[in-house]
Design a protein around this nucleic acid. Structure first.
Lengths: 196, 196
DNA sequence: TATGATACGGAGAGTTTCTCCGGTTCAACG
DNA sequence: CGTTGAACCGGAGAAACTCTCCGTATCATA
């Protein structure tokens, strides 16, 4: 269900103005930014904002869409450039970073399969599946892992981590598990996050 | 920094009324419930609410405090009743459930070390340490694990999981790790969550 | 019981979300 | 090119919320 671009020239222009203003304001104030402020910054009345984006989530989804597309494209590149395990882990790091942008906008959208305007879940599912399946076939990752597990765990980490270092730490722990290794050595087959 | 109970009888009575009303309303509507509604339900003016609990967080902390104390007491019991690994895992399950109560109140408080009124961080740290250290000495859990890791991971899972089943699944994954086991068998030394 | 410190409560200022509708602008068509 | 009606704009304003101020009422103490 895609937010259909308006047909009339002035409407389309306002749509773009609002999207640009929303991107800027949300980057500054996070997903709870005042919608009035966004309309004001776009030089448009509140009514216009609400016509184009009936709910706050619709606006957030529109802002979110561009970045998500870029992230999924990156998944494709990684799948071709690197061995399965490395590619997956590298993408997970990008996913964490993405989920932490804009003060939680990313995580909020990623967890909302019913987000209007963008089918985040399908896009993420495609990208994650593209990386997850080869990694499983290569025996690097549990066979019973599903993409929803990945997305949820990453979103949780992103919401909870106070900064990039903490996020990295939590991702490492999640990949390796909290249990002590039987062999005594903590490291698994490959290093957790050596990929740049 | 403890929320000091008021001295005068009517003040104390209103304090209790507000706490009870807040507990009820927050259970229904979550941590973003209207403060006006809470005051109304307590049969008290808005001014009175704000005198007793200057900020929303102060009120949430007061509501949260009782449950947190119970949770920490349970940690003590578990540490005495069960072997280290089991006790820790059982408590983590309780922690997840706790963090999911009241539509996210638990997770919100657990992650806010500066929460006014209750030093959640210290209480949690004490309880978690009481279980974590023995588990590490018994070699069941990674030696480099810190209690902050536990709390954050659990809070993340709680915020993200759509229901108890998903939370359980994510906790299992986090305990065991996402990587395939070298030995091919997915299960670690002990079952992840066999404890009732 | 008298008294002053303490606490109450509601009016109201300032925000924010969201709706409604009179007026305006665009695009298609003759 | 001018007309026309559909699409769109903008802002007034209702409703809900947070938070403050202060006149009034209540309690504890002596």
């Amino acid at each position: 269900m895609q937010t259909t671009r308006p047909r009339r020239a002035d409407a389309r222009r306002n749509y773009e103005l609002l999207l640009a203003a929303a991107t800027a304001v949300i980057a500054e104030e996070g997903p709870d930014a005042s919608l009035n402020e966004i309309a004001r910054r776009a030089g448009v009345g509140p009514g216009t904002l609400y016509r184009h984006f009936p709910t706050r989530d619709a606006l957030l989804a529109a802002v979110f869409q561009g970045r998500l597309a870029a992230l999924c494209a990156r998944a494709e590149e990684l799948a071709e450039e690197r061995p399965p395990g490395e590619a997956l882990v590298a993408w997970l790091r990008l996913l964490v970073a993405h989920a932490m942008t804009d003060r939680g906008l990313g995580a909020r959208m990623m967890l909302n399969p019913a987000a209007p305007g963008v089918d985040c879940w399908a896009m993420l599912g495609g990208a994650a599946g593209r990386l997850l399946r080869p990694a499983q076939e290569a025996g690097v990752v549990r066979a019973d892992l599903e993409f929803a597990d990945l997305v949820e765990l990453v979103a949780g980490i992103a919401q909870v981590a106070s900064g990039p270092e903490r996020a990295e730490r939590l991702l490492t722990l999640t990949l390796d598990g909290l249990r002590a290794r039987d062999g005594g050595d903590q490291r698994g087959a490959g290093s957790s996050l050596r990929v740049p």
